[in-house]
Amino acid sequence: MNSAIQIKELALKLGGVSILKGISFSVAEGEYISIIGPNGAGKTTLMRCLLGMYVYEGSVRIDGTECSQANSRELAKTISYVPQTHDMEFPLTVRDFVMMGRYPYLSPLAPAQKRDIEAVEKALEVTGTGSFRDRLLRTLSGGERQKVYIAAALAQETPVMLLDEPATFLDWKHQADVMQLLKKINRECGATIVAVNHDLNSAAHWSDRIIALKEGAVLLDGPPAEIIQPGPLKELFETTFIRKETLAPITKKNQAE
């Protein structure tokens, strides 16, 4: 299987401090991976490297394109990003917001083309957000808003989708909704999904593979059943807050799939 993302010996210093220390891994096309790790492990920095926001040492390639050297519009055609959502003070409608996902394809003065409108409509349909396309973003609930953010990333039509804590701050039902939607995008649209996740249960339940970062390096890399175990997690978080019995059903379910 081809790799969607290839990271080799990625290292980065910010303000003289070494944040990433020789990270290497690759992600296969159509894979769904979660990146976990304690605060300060370098998850956000790794994400920004993928988005081409830093000049780093080593190599980060998405679909063969080196991220730090790519033209920002060209890079945006290979990887889309769903940030942690926050309040939007300005009265933007859902449709306008999703249309922003088409930015890398649009020319400065020309209006959106048929192709763009179709991509937006499809994204609204897949995410089930079409029914509130004319509502303002700020009037939506947390779960609805998260889906709209995912719709905008989907409209960007990229092979890779990167998400920062896709289900944090959502209640259980909406977490499941959003995660199911991502799985659907992963399976049906064939998108490679990389999600930074603090929620170990959700990482274990939904991803094909988990990569655990600690102090700027990859500590663990493998299927959830291997990683979400008391031993490895203790090494990762340096605490024994996990009880084996609560984890058992999740890992079993994952193994069964």
Binding site: S72, K77, Y81, P83, L92, D96, G101, P104, P108, L109
Partner: peptide, 24 residues
Amino acid sequence: CALLTREMNLLLTGDELAAARGVN
């Protein structure tokens, strides 16, 4: 300003997301 109306829209959503959508 006329050349940057789409970019202004994206800036409203935050620098990180604007950059990820391809805005310099």
